[in-house]
Write a protein that binds this DNA or RNA. Structure first.
Length: 603
DNA sequence: ATAGGGTTAG
């Protein structure tokens, strides 16, 4: 159309006055309808639709040659209400929607009734077999928690041959997000064709459902079929290994990714670093980290956090210093991790120092989490008064998490009075959280207040709060073996129990004394009288002694926190059997070696 | 139109 020479000098379009001026200039030059200029005008209006919608509508209504391309980009930029008004305008011109209209409109359509209206319009206008429109419709129903409606569209589209691999993958991913991972698997199994996105969607669906082994099985199947993976799939597989606590498999996936020439981008690298950290190999994580050419903020956070949960406070603080020197700006997560590192390593004054400079030096406004870390920092160190003062002085109402940190500190340091007061409070704030009842019961038990212990138990029973069963996994020869507290389900159960008995007898001879102070354990209700011997980590350790070679490090991942007795017993096992044992519990890592633990009994 | 990473307190 018009030559660029006639284009008016671009002026900043930041106010409505400038916009009007610009517009009138375009009109004078006869350029107002030129697609590029019109789009520029319209995109400005999309930024503040509330005040400028009428202006945009006039512009579009009076356009000499309206085209869907003028409307479509606005549909994805406007909130649902304005998009609907714009659609009404479009239809009134009348200007029929094209192939881009529904895919732009549907993702932001919002509430179900709008999606249903678009659905009806889509059918009326004859888009019933248009794949991209149908796919957008599927996604819209799925995000509105209506897999039933999505399925209906899906089955209807199947007959007409209008579905493609994206439609199937949308169903798989959408069902996974709604927690229907088994349903997703059925769709996945029936797919006529899969691409890497489909494989990854299924794998990550299992990961989100906590079904790491299933995820890795899908990954194996993918490889068996000779499908070449990419970084997405590799990252998901690595995350699955992280969740499963499967170090050997994680290493294998890592090597395989390197071999197959998958690019180690920031996300994949971070997943790998995290995998090594969470599988107990913080040094290996550090090697991967150091070898990275460029490290993103998340990667730094991950490495610092990894050092923190391994109790390596000095290293974490040092790495944070290097991050500063390399001018990588920390975020709130970084500071949480640094404070956690200080808390877990007993570095109270360092932690205080970072917190004091959090605003001025790091430009971070302390959030609830940071106050929680400070409570934890003082609490773990036994400085309960100062922990309490943090809570009293914080600018917001402490949430249950912050109070929980103080409560935990009371348990560690046996402050029954304060602990009881806070304990009841956190229980009432989160009545379904079984761990809080257990902690309070155990705290009261240390004071010999058996009637109150029974009261806590009854309260739990009355509210139908069930405790999570203790589970520990240990990886042997690349196989992940799980043990449940008191359960005899393992194929080698008899042998394992015999070994566990023998193990306890041997450490008993070396001075181990069972610690029965914790009367309630985080185990299933019907198993609460299970002897300490049958705690899942003892079974896992016994199994490890049976199945790994002398001198091998045993790595155990546990779903709950390790109890006092298991902690003590594991210290003895590490000395008597001359084994390094790394236990990852709900909160942190314990490295047992020569009868000592890296947490310095401070957890 | 479908896909991947980190965070404290029990």
């Amino acid at each position: 159309m018009s030559a660029p020479a006639l284009t008016p000098t671009p002026i900043p379009l930041t106010t409505i006055a400038e916009l009007r001026q610009h517009h009138s200039q375009l009109v004078r030059l006869g350029l107002a309808s030129h697609p590029a200029h019109a789009r520029r005008l319209l995109s400005f209006l999309a930024r503040d639709p509330d005040s400028h919608f009428p202006y945009a509508a006039r512009l579009l209504a009076h356009h000499p040659d309206p085209h869907p391309a003028l409307f479509n980009p606005l549909f994805s930029a406007l909130p649902p209400r304005h998009a609907a008004r714009l659609l009404a305008l479009m239809l009134s011109l009348p200007l029929p929607p094209d192939h881009f209209t529904f895919p732009r409109l549907l993702p932001g359509a919002g509430p179900l009734h709008l999606v249903a209206q678009l659905h009806a319009l889509l059918l009326k206008l004859g888009f019933h077999a248009h794949t991209q429109s149908l796919n957008a419709l599927l996604a819209a129903y799925l995000t509105n928690d209506r897999p039933d409606l999505a399925s209906r569209v899906f089955s209807g589209g199947g007959g007409g041959g209008a579905l493609d691999v994206v439609s199937w993958t949308t169903m798989v991913g959408g069902l996974c997000k709604l927690g229907q991972v088994d349903g997703a698997r059925e769709v996945f199994d029936a797919m006529p064709e899969r691409n890497l996105v489909s494989w990854n969607a299924m794998m990550s669906g299992y990961v989100k459902a906590g079904r790491f082994t299933d995820s890795l099985e899908v990954f194996d199947e993918m490889r068996e079929r000779g499908v070449e993976a990419n970084g997405f799939v590799a990252a998901t597989a690595v995350v699955a290994c992280t969740g499963a606590g499967a170090l050997a498999r994680g290493r294998e996936v890592h090597r395989w990714a390197e071999r197959s020439g998958v690019e180690m981008d920031e996300k994949l690298a971070t997943a790998v670093v995290d995998m090594y950290c969470k599988c107990g190999c913080v040094d290996e994580a550090r090697c991967v980290f150091e070898a990275l050419p460029a490290k993103g903020l998340t990667t730094w956070n991950c490495m610092i956090g990894g050092l923190a949960v391994h109790g390596r406070g000095e290293d974490a603080v040092e790495l944070f210093g290097r991050m500063e020197r390399e001018s990588v700006a920390p975020d709130d997560v970084t500071l949480v991790n640094v404070l956690t590192a200080c808390a877990h390593a007993g570095m109270v004054s360092e932690g205080r120092h970072y917190f004091d400079h959090i605003v001025q030096r790091y430009g971070i406004i302390p959030k609830m989490e940071h106050y929680g870390c400070m409570v934890d920092l003082y609490g773990r160190a036994g400085r309960l008064d100062e922990a309490k003062r943090v809570i009293d002085d914080m600018p917001m109402e402490p949430d249950v998490g912050v109070l929980g940190a103080l409560f935990g500190a009371c348990k560690i340091h046996g402050d029954v009075d304060l602990g009881e007061a806070i304990g009841w409070r956190v229980i009432e704030l989160e009545p379904q959280n079984s761990g809080r009842y257990v902690l309070l019961a155990n705290l009261l038990a240390t004071a010999g207040r058996w009637e109150d212990v029974a009261r806590v138990r009854r309260l739990m029973d009355g509210r139908n709060v069930s405790k999570e069963a203790g589970r520990s996994v240990i990886e042997v020869d690349g196989e992940v073996c799980e043990f449940q507290c008191g359960s005899l389900r393992h194929p080698q159960a008899e042998e394992v129990y015999a070994m566990a008995n023998d193990m306890m007898r041997r450490i008993g001879a070396e001075g181990y004394v069972p610690d029965t102070r914790d009367v309630l354990h985080d185990i299933a209700e019907e198993e609460k009288e299970t002897p300490l011997l049958y705690h899942s980590e003892k079974l896992a350790i016994a199994f490890g002694l049976l199945r790994t070679r002398p001198g091998d490090t045993m790595r155990i991942t546990k779903n709950l926190r390790v109890c006092r007795d298991c902690h003590e017993a594991t210290k003895f096992v590490s000395r008597v059997f001359e084994r390094e044992i790394v236990v990852r519990d709900r909160n942190r890592f314990h490295h047992f070696k020569d009868g000592k633990c890296s947490c310095k009994d401070y957890w």
